[in-house]
Design a protein around this nucleic acid. Structure first.
Lengths: 349, 349
DNA sequence: AGCCCAATTGAAATCGTTACCATAGGAAGA
DNA sequence: TCTTCCTATGGTAACGATTTCAATTGGGCT
């Protein structure tokens, strides 16, 4: 028995504009118009097409669209990691703004490795993203070169860029550090411990540290009264760092941490050492993670507008060419959130 | 003066396979082969092409590739939210496996809204993702229909699917809840509070609750001795829920929380009420977030293999058609992590 | 009545790859 | 020496949209 020519045609595939056009009795160009600029198509034809689209459950092919129009509606986000929860809120903010616009977020992590960042950027460019949000100002030349050569819009977050040609939506990390130093000085503390993030190739960590140190100096505190330890942003590292500080200078009455994660660890380190916070030791964090309020004691910390940065970045990437500059530099504020982990200085007995 | 025909050609655009082929003196087909199945091209020609690729900084156009081959190397992840940090580790696990394979993760949130999930899925399909990781077993028919009609591979995480045709990499939420009840019973507790997540259309939250209740019953504890409160996964809600439980039954000596976030809030709620944990009240969480170990007191909790689920999901999506079934159902284990927030029951005075 | 312009629609080129098929050349086997 | 087969390569047609550009129509104006 001969096989039918069009044997298993029944196997229905996803419909394309061709199918829509056929059913609507119009050209594919018109279908495309209805999908993209509906107002340019006569109302009745438009409705008819829309009806068919709905009926067939037509979903446009994004790859085809991206190939032809060179716009993918994909925005890349590159952060060091989400492990420490610092960047999660920004990610949420970014995505929450992208989604309603039909855009999607492509997430990539670098693990604080700038060389890996190059590869990640290349990968994102390959995916055809319309824009990339980066963290901080330290990047390999190669990274920037890739971005520029492929004309991919990008922006820096979590910091402000000195280079005006680089859009940034961030805050002044130095100012944040200064906030902490100032407050601690107000409370009468004169001997500090600082648990900074790793400052190498990290302008956020180094900015916070510098800001703290500069303000301490302005408040007449000798640099020799400040013990600085650098640690990766991990609970366990904060704990260990606190112990180092305690061993190094028994007069320290306040510790400033470059992130809340470090502060949580340091809180634990103090507890291990039998110190009470804030009675024996004041503690300030950085980030104002949600958890900060619910720790015991509640953590005094520098609030970072993480979600807002994400939203602002989204605004920037979503903006059309004409209004681009409006959104290209957004300076946000940090502020000190005072809770229970800080108290006036007291001489340790 | 006449304008040159090819006036501002200098404006170099990103090179394509055509340019590569021209310089290598071969066809674009061969360039494509070098990029995709290098072993099929003679070694010297291959090297020559690779050299040119490198020299020109050629980056393939993913849209074109996706359009033609209908593989985008994009994997979608849809979770309710990252706010509560529960899903972040899974996301990290997923991405960490995807990246080395040249694939990228597209992140979308639903805000626990199943109708929004439909739109999110459609959007992801439009982007041409090769697969989608979902959370849990509750989904709208429409969601599954979209997935099936467009032949998009998908998998369920954070739970196991009853339907064998649905791949899942997860764990038994009921077993996790049972773990908690069993341990608390071992410690001699007979009056429980449970702060469950919102169980409506959420099989993880309801599974944990059911598992706890079932085991409690098996251990001879009357249902009337158990106060159940449901709360969204937010610190503040956990805090409030603890107070409700405390008011409702003064005999409660242990609280099981459907997530660590709720437990942190509940810890605070107990502190507000002047109760010491674990002396006056035992507390068990669920998730084993990194923070759990660093709380005061350290939180006893049910560990969830979040990162592992992400990695397994990645394995599944990265697997080729032939070895698909190998990875299509991965049951992972929960285990109880005992820390300082639980202690033997003591009669409240 | 004649002209012009705006509003609609269609035809066809194009985006950059991959996949299919054809072909040439050389090795292996008879 | 002739077939046969395999390997390496090229030519070219898709993939499914968007984007010119051109054509048609009808209304408003003079």
């Amino acid at each position: 028995m001969a096989l039918e020519k069009t044997s298993r045609v029944e196997q229905r595939q996803s419909p394309t504009v061709v199918e829509i056009a056929k059913r609507a009795g119009c050209s594919i160009a018109t279908v495309s118009r209805v999908l993209n600029r509906p107002e340019t198509v006569a109302i009745d034809l438009r409705e008819r097409i829309l009806h068919i689209v709905d009926e067939l459950g037509y979903v446009p092919n994004g790859s085809a669209r991206a190939l032809r129009s060179s716009r993918s509606r994909l925005i890349g986000l590159i952060v060091p990691t989400l492990d420490s929860a610092i960047f999660t809120r920004m990610l949420e903010g970014l995505e929450s703004r992208l989604a309603p616009a039909g855009a999607s977020l492509v997430y990539s992590a670098t693990g604080y490795d700038l060389d890996r960042e190059i590869r990640v950027v290349r990968n994102l460019i390959e995916k055809g993203v319309d824009g990339i949000a980066l963290v901080g100002n330290y990047h390999r030349k190669e990274t920037l070169k890739l971005l520029r050569e492929h004309k991919v819009r990008f922006a820096v977050t979590y910091a402000l860029s000195d280079d005006v040609s680089i859009p940034s939506m961030g805050f002044d990390n130095r100012a944040g550090g200064a906030l902490a130093a100032n407050y601690l000085a107000d409370l009468g503390h004169r001997n500090f411990g600082v648990i900074a993030g790793v400052t190498r190739e990290n302008d956020r960590a180094s900015g916070r540290l510098e800001g703290f140190l500069a303000m301490a100096e302005r408040r007449g505190i000798s640099r020799s009264n400040i013990v600085v330890v650098e640690s990766p942003y991990e609970f366990s590292r904060g704990r260990a760092a606190a112990k180092i500080i305690l061993n190094q200078n028994r007069n320290v009455t306040a510790i400033f941490c470059g992130s809340d994660v470090l502060a949580v660890g340091a809180l634990r380190g103090c507890r291990d050492a039998g110190l009470r916070v804030p009675e024996d030791m004041s503690m300030i964090g950085f980030d104002n993670l949600d958890i900060a309020e619910y720790l015991t004691p509640g953590l005094t910390t520098v609030d970072v507008p993480a979600r807002l940065m994400g939203e602002q970045a989204a605004n920037y990437f979503l903006a059309d060419q004409s209004s681009l500059d409006i959104h290209s530099r957004v300076e946000l504020e940090t502020r000190l959130i005072v809770r229970e982990s800080t108290a006036p200085a007291r001489i340790r007995q």
